[in-house]
């Protein structure tokens, strides 16, 4: 059986907010290491990779690997019924037809349980290799969110080029062009999460659909910083670390100029 108790139930809401615009269903894999999900959007352009490590839960028990196929839209509806301060317990049997969600208020004066039907999902699982990135950019997540929103107001595709001087985001649309350069500022008085850091072994440049990048920024409440990893001619990875718990990562295939 599987049973996991999470003290910060609000975290589950944030995780679901970060994926609900991209996928409508997914297999949550329960394993002794933790709860994970890998799923592609319907057009197979982007991939979500979530890991919530077992150590991050107050109580975690998983005897064997259990795939838990869930409709994300319905899951969002159920988790919305939890208070953001509630303690959430997720429970299911080894071959589950249902998953139980138990919500306990912080003061222990309200307990709710919800049972949700599971579904069999035939999804493609991709082997994403561990990659050494040619360029890694760490920046405040709110700044990346703002930047993607601003770029999307001008164009559909953003070109991201990373050099040791900084990261340049450029887009072109019917009304004109926009360029925003973010420079590394590691020596200032900023707190670590306010800094922009760039590590590169060689300059990288590629174009990406802003519609997807904008969806990825729905993960902003999960982390004060975001990390972009790029390798020439490979998908970009956009990673939001979840403190003491794991991560939400997005992979997005590049656009190729015709």
């Amino acid at each position: 059986m599987f049973e996991a108790r999470l003290l910060q139930g609000g975290l589950l809401k944030k995780v679901l907010d970060s994926i609900k615009d991209i996928i409508t269903e997914g297999n949550f894999d329960c394993s002794p290491n933790g709860l994970s999900l890998q799923a592609m959007d319907s057009s197979h352009v982007s991939l979500i990779d979530i890991l919530l490590e077992s150590e991050g839960f107050e109580h975690y028990r998983c005897d064997r690997n259990i795939p838990m196929g869930l409709n994300i839209t319905n899951l969002v509806k159920m988790i919305k019924c939890a208070g953001s301060e509630d303690i959430v317990t997720i429970k299911c049997e080894d071959k589950p037809d249902n998953v139980t969600f138990l919500f306990e208020s912080k003061d222990n004066d309200k307990i709710s349980d919800f049972e949700m039907k599971t579904m069999t999902i035939d999804d493609e699982h991709l082997l994403v290799p561990d990659q050494t990135y040619t360029a890694v950019v760490k920046m405040p997540s709110a700044e990346f969110q703002r930047l993607c929103r601003d770029m999307a107001a001008i164009g559909d595709t953003v070109n991201i080029s990373v050099t040791k001087e900084g990261v340049r985001f450029s887009t072109t649309g019917d009304m004109g062009t926009a360029n925003i350069t973010v420079r590394p500022n590691p020596s200032g008085d900023q707190k670590e999460e306010e800094r922009t850091e760039v590590q590169i072994t060689e300059p990288v440049s590629a174009g990406f659909a802003l519609r997807y990048l904008n969806s990825f920024t729905k993960a902003t409440p999960l982390s004060p910083t975001v990390t972009l990893g790029m390798v020439p001619n490979l998908p970009i990875v956009v990673e939001y670390k979840i403190a003491d718990m794991g991560h939400v990562r997005y992979y997005l295939a590049p656009k190729i100029e015709d």
Binding site: S43, V45, E124, L126, L127, A209, Y251, P254, E257
Partner: peptide, 14 residues
């Protein structure tokens, strides 16, 4: 002007 690649162009199926 831009052609969108798919992830299966880069990663193998598990």
């Amino acid at each position: 002007r831009f052609f969108q690649n798919h992830l299966s162009d880069y990663y193998m199926q598990d």
